[in-house]
Design a protein around this nucleic acid. Structure first.
Length: 433
RNA sequence: GUGACUGUAGCUCAGUUGGUUAGAGCGCCGGAUUGUGGUUCCGGAGGUCGCGGGUUCGAAUCCCGUCAGUCACCCCA
């Protein structure tokens, strides 16, 4: 008879405990505050789209990672793998009703059929902010400032944001007469940090039209320098009078200037010509955020400029720039660092004084809540000791016991301080202070 | 998607060349003490050895499959 279905979750999918869900909710809330403070408004789109909307956007590889199937009505459908493509569809579809520049943020789950690993899931949340319309370094700088503010608000430790502009490298390749080599070279450069110069060098040298000496030069030019000024000087020299490359460098310089003007510490941003990340659709600046305390968990956020994202859906030219914060990876990192605080516990436990006097407990609890103090009444007439232990385990800082005769006995668990209050108002006052 | 490794109580792990009723610490539950918890003492519950199949007189220990996790590739938040 007892042939139960085994309770389990799908590969790469997972449950969030109250502690984890609490932390995620806090991160989401903090991000929303930051996004709104920059003038961004939320939108929402369906988790599922017509497969044709999603396919072919992030390159062939993201097609492979797509969860797609045929629905019962015979439609080819798929789950979104990011929030940027749905944004492109949204903007193309509703462009007549939108005001540009269009700033929106969007938070929700996305799905990718990758093989799971640490900090890497098949279902995870992204929190995106994008600005559609302006094709300016000003907008690029705005996104950088926004992202710096976002991580500052999240309280997840120090984060390094690295920026680059794809036009710098493509400008360099243009000069070498191998503009088409941009994608494979970017890919090879991306591996450098993990696999070392030699691996990247060989891979670049194999790209059509490139030689080993060209590979050496590319690797040298995109090396990390002591500081941004030095980096920019080297890049400027490398790019020469190539228009595309110069545009990239000017953008980086301008963005840096504006970020500094916004009062952000210089350390919050590093110009790193070696970062190439991102989907194929990035055309200008690209950025990537890493936790300083746990860099090997991967990037915890990224972004960049895409000047032709909605091109598949509309004639209109809809350039944009945006960023994405990966809160699930942040959450995984916080788990490992055992940071991020405990789960949601109310400020006060009102003990259950027995069925007869339970109304007193409810009345007092209501008064606490009215004063803005979260609380709960123990829902069972368990022994007092059990109720205390419950409060201790959940990390509830105060316990209040309604006594006979209308007084209240309070205890602060952190230091064991106790107090008898003549009235509920007294008790509320003591806790509030 | 490709390759490799791992899978024993809630958690971290022991489990000898395959051999009788699978162990520990922590946690959990109960009791005593503590003026109402966190200390200390006593007691207790809890394991389909991931799952399925095979080899064997006999498997947590060997083989195959499967599911899940981890790592590398790929890619990325």
């Amino acid at each position: 008879m007892a042939d139960f279905i085994q309770p389990r979750t799908l590969k790469g999918f997972r449950d969030l405990s109250p502690d984890q869900a609490y932390r995620r909710a806090n991160l989401v809330r903090a991000l929303e505050d930051v996004f709104r403070s920059h003038g961004y408004a939320p939108i929402d789109t369906p988790a599922m789209e017509y497969a044709e909307i999603l396919k072919g956007k992030g390159g062939e590889t993201s097609d492979k990672e797509l969860f797609e199937w045929t629905d019962k009505g015979g439609r080819e459908v798929a789950l979104r793998f990011d929030l940027t493509v749905p944004l492109a569809r949204y903007v193309a579809e509703h462009q007549g009703k939108l005001t540009f520049p269009f700033r929106r943020y969007h938070m929700g789950p996305v799905w990718r059929g990758e093989r799971p690993q640490r900090g890497r899931f098949r279902e995870f949340w992204q929190c995106d902010a994008d600005i559609i319309g302006p094709e300016t370094a000003t907008a690029d700088a705005e996104i950088l400032v926004l992202m710096i503010d976002a991580y500052a608000a999240l309280d997840v430790g120090s984060v390094t944001i690295r920026v680059n502009d794809r036009r710098v490298l493509t400008g360099m390749l243009d000069k070498l007469g191998v503009l088409d080599a941009a994608v494979p070279v970017l890919r090879a450069l991306d591996k450098r940090e993990k696999l070392g110069d030699e691996v990247s060098r060989l891979e670049i040298a194999e790209v059509e039209g490139l030689t080993e000496s060209a590979a050496d030069r590319i690797l040298d030019l995109t090396r990390k320098r002591a500081n941004d000024d030095e980096t920019l000087a080297v890049l400027k020299d490398a790019v020469g009078d190539n228009e595309r490359g110069l545009a990239g460098i000017e953008t980086l310089e301008r963005a840096r200037e504006l970020v500094a003007a916004a009062g952000k510490p210089a350390s919050s941003l590093v110009i790193d010509p070696g970062i190439a990340r991102g989907l194929d659709y990035y055309t200008g600046i690209v950025l990537e955020a890493q936790l300083d305390a746990l860099p090997d968990i991967g990037s915890v956020g990224s972004g960049g400029r895409y000047d032709d994202l909605a091109g598949l859906y509309t004639k209109s030219r809809l350039p944009g720039v945006g960023c994405s914060v990966g809160i699930d990876r942040l959450l995984a990192a916080l788990d490992e660092l055992e940071a991020g605080g405990r789960g949601a516990a109310p400020a006060v436990l009102v003990t259950n004084p027995g069925d007869e006097r339970l109304p007193e407990a409810f009345r007092f609890a209501a008064a606490l809540r009215a004063a803005g103090i979260s609380c709960e009444v123990f829902p069972d007439t368990a022994k007092h000791k059990a109720q205390m232990r419950y409060a201790d385990k959940r990390g509830i800082p105060y316990v209040v016991t309604p006594d006979e005769g209308g007084t209240f006995f309070l205890k602060r668990l952190s230091d064991g301080a106790t107090r008898t209050c003549a009235s509920g108002a007294d008790a509320v006052g003591w806790i509030a202070s």
